[in-house]
Write a protein that binds this DNA or RNA. Sequence first.
DNA 1: CCGATCTGGATGACATGTCAACCAAAGAGG
DNA 2: CCTCTTTGGTTGACATGTCATCCAGATCGG
Lengths: 186, 186
Amino acid sequence: MTSTSRPSPAQALQTAHADRTAAVQADPAEPRWLSPAEQHLWRTFMRMRQQLDAQLARQIQAESDISIADFSVLVVLTDVPDGRVRVLELARNLQWEKSRLSHHLARMVKRGLIERAECTEDGRGSFVVITDAGRRAIEAAAPRHVELVRTLFFDPLSEEQVTQLTQISERILGAMEGCPEVLPES
Amino acid sequence: MTSTSRPSPAQALQTAHADRTAAVQADPAEPRWLSPAEQHLWRTFMRMRQQLDAQLARQIQAESDISIADFSVLVVLTDVPDGRVRVLELARNLQWEKSRLSHHLARMVKRGLIERAECTEDGRGSFVVITDAGRRAIEAAAPRHVELVRTLFFDPLSEEQVTQLTQISERILGAMEGCPEVLPES
DNA sequence: CCGATCTGGATGACATGTCAACCAAAGAGG
DNA sequence: CCTCTTTGGTTGACATGTCATCCAGATCGG
């Protein structure tokens, strides 16, 4: 424990009223806590992305027969010429764990949005194919969804900010790929 | 259906190879699809926030006894002098649905991280109080968590980008509060 | 004071996600 | 060919989140 009094976790991460700074720290055992400006950004960012997700999920759920998870699966399937993708390819594309994907695909099959097709080249693999119902479902859901993405996400931003946010996202994403701090197995 | 061929939902939202532009559109029935640059940002942004969440969740789960959800509840509790908060206050602070919060608090009680205390001023309300075990748990988890937030989120960004992202987040958040497109009831 | 309504919160049924274990087909290496 | 390991994918148990509903205590209008 250093001589400087240690902030509570709340102060370190979340309070708006903390006025300490992330002072000079030579002690490697003491983590580099967040400065007030950083705390503010972290809070705001998390709140923003959470609200954004919630709104998008609620809207698509309320106004169509599919969930946002269904939607993203169907997007990948409609993006490929024959509406037919290997499961693993899907997993990579969506960055979902294979287990999650497997469960979700099973549910989507049950709802008639997709079907499975066996893979002749590789006996263990299998394909996922979009059904007509699936196609109809996503085509019904997409316009309102895109509209909401635009309303909530793009409309408030200037062109400059769009550029900035692109660079920022790429930066953070790049840093994570380089640093498998806790690697997901993929 | 307009005379211009309509893009697939995938093209509208997700493909990298789409080269159409969000052309002039007078038809209000046709949603304003995303331009290639916008599609790229949307994909990148979503991927970034998803990876970020996943890493943070996995790390805290793996290296401590609490989940990231537990963590955020405990953060609020440690932020207040007596470690004692009304449930509704908690819900507002976390922006969680009350149902979710209720379930989660029940689980946390079962694990001994928090306790409940009755509210004398309001017979139906109740307080949540952090226990010693809860305090110990969050204090154990916080340093590594903050460190990872710093590594993954702040370190890759320049000071300028931190400023930019703060403004961007505030903008989007502000737009959502103004627009109850699909209101959460809160 | 009394019913009508609102509010804070809990609950049950169900959808979704995670982890660990499993399994069979595919590739090594000898 | 015959093991050994890898790989693609599934499964079950369990944690978590959502929706609708319910409930008791507060509040409000008379």
